[in-house]
Design a protein around this nucleic acid. Sequence first.
DNA 1: CTATTGGGGACAGATCTTGACCTAAATTCT
DNA 2: AGAATTTAGGTCAAGATCTGTCCCCAATAG
Lengths: 317, 317
Amino acid sequence: MSQTSSRLLELLSLLQARRDWPGSELADRLEVSGRTIRRDMERLRQLGYPVESLTGPAGGYRLRAGTAMPPLLLDDDEAIAIAVGLRTAARASVTGIEETAVRALVKLEQVLPAHLRRRVGALGSATFTPPAAGPTVDPQHLTVIAAACRDSESVRFAYRSRDGTDSRREVEPHSLVNHGRRWYLIAWDRGREDWRTFRVDRLGEPVPAGVRFGQRKLPAKDAVAYVEQSISGAPNRFEARVTLHASAREIGSRIAAHWGAIESRGAHRCEYRTGDDDLSWLALRIAMLGVDFEVHEPPELVEHVRALSSRLLRAVG
Amino acid sequence: MSQTSSRLLELLSLLQARRDWPGSELADRLEVSGRTIRRDMERLRQLGYPVESLTGPAGGYRLRAGTAMPPLLLDDDEAIAIAVGLRTAARASVTGIEETAVRALVKLEQVLPAHLRRRVGALGSATFTPPAAGPTVDPQHLTVIAAACRDSESVRFAYRSRDGTDSRREVEPHSLVNHGRRWYLIAWDRGREDWRTFRVDRLGEPVPAGVRFGQRKLPAKDAVAYVEQSISGAPNRFEARVTLHASAREIGSRIAAHWGAIESRGAHRCEYRTGDDDLSWLALRIAMLGVDFEVHEPPELVEHVRALSSRLLRAVG
DNA sequence: CTATTGGGGACAGATCTTGACCTAAATTCT
DNA sequence: AGAATTTAGGTCAAGATCTGTCCCCAATAG
């Protein structure tokens, strides 16, 4: 039944797997006549997929880039590569596509066969994460929560608040926001009967609670605004000010805009301002620039750099 | 024409965008009767997509994970997120999925609409790449070459050899191999009339030459073996041996296996061996572990760490 | 010029699709 | 327990679609 539909899908799959396909080969593979293949191409074109064709010997069909995305037909390995890629993109915190990456990840994981999911999990744990990078978010947590947001389903999880006390929460998730290298969950806390923001790196074992809920109105313009006003009272980070012995041009080409501001201080000097929660990570980020520098603020960073320096000296001396 | 096929695709798209869909809403949206929706679900199930359904109020349809990947129907933003994610996965050089990531990227880029490709390019340049990480590969180069390998199409590019001489090449690409944090292209060099391996980070402006060719037989067991025998004479890297002041367990949990070998030297000591082409990157990777250490080899690394230490000391006065 | 490959019109028979109507089963809410 | 809601699916008839065959045309590489 519906042989036509499945044949069209298979055709799309073949056209994505290789660039050029002679019609006769397609007819052979799909066990239909050449005439039907020509008609299928006509159908695909009518569906909006731009199929190019070349006549003559060495001719054939070819799927071009069009104006809209066609359905992607992936084999197992490709699906895994995409899942792994999206996980790192979701963690990146610099490109500005983290939230979209999570959305795509939710879509992918919803239909990802179980055996592939296991392989993704195994690969994910092999990724190199510098310990100085601060607490990292489990991509699995992100997808569970994002799925719950999308489907208006409440979630239960364990939470460790800033002061270290543990608790169990049941919330109605509203949205998941990436802000300043951190993920925040905005949700209505069922127990507290109020809105709360949770740092995703501080919650554990999120599980969908299976209870659907109606949308509540967020007491802010939008989710990002809410996060900003929630965390503004507790910036929880170090703001560094350093002078780099290099031109602003030279440095600017090597640093993404999200990572701090650069101001020129002459041909061979510039000032770099950047912030972070984690001193080690902050220090290394500056050291990685590979130029001489001077740390002005904060005093904790001065102390940290000094400690790092002596550790390195001990290492070789 | 072929309304059924396009409706099935739209149905798949809707089922991927949200989890639960009441049949009536689907019927409404697709402007068909409820009976047709039920029949479509039957069709999808026969095509192998596991559609779950719940009866009663709050019931509806839901696409579950099955045993095979269904076609992924992405919106523009999601496609971009996937492209960006795959680019970073292709560059990762630790997870072992780089080659698959490139293959998926080729598939995606072949059908990626032009306006989306521009957005991907813009985002890619905003990524943070530590300057100490050594020469990086342009993902665009990777996809051009991988596509040429897949489609047996020859390629032209500029190449700078190890000793710094520039040349233009026209080759018949055989395969693209990721080996030891580097990308290598194995190809038949048309000008030299022999097999060559090229480091992808040293080639520029690859363009498909439009000439198809027949497969030649590679003079080695497989592509990986060929790369290994080609580069074995020129390891071109530093091998570090350091003692870390921490237990092997503690360190092992923070380092991916690909990044080096760890051997226990008692409860509070372990030996770490790792290699790299770039001293800065090597030094920082060790420093990032956040524990005290001693560098034994190579002497260049000792010197480099000493220099880094004094730079840090200068930075804080 | 010739062989090869896609494009497509016409036709007939087979097959599929759809909505309408109806009954059954499962599940939630009252 | 009972009412309401939602999916499941059988049946039917009218209409649309699909397929293979046969045929000729246009473009292209060698």
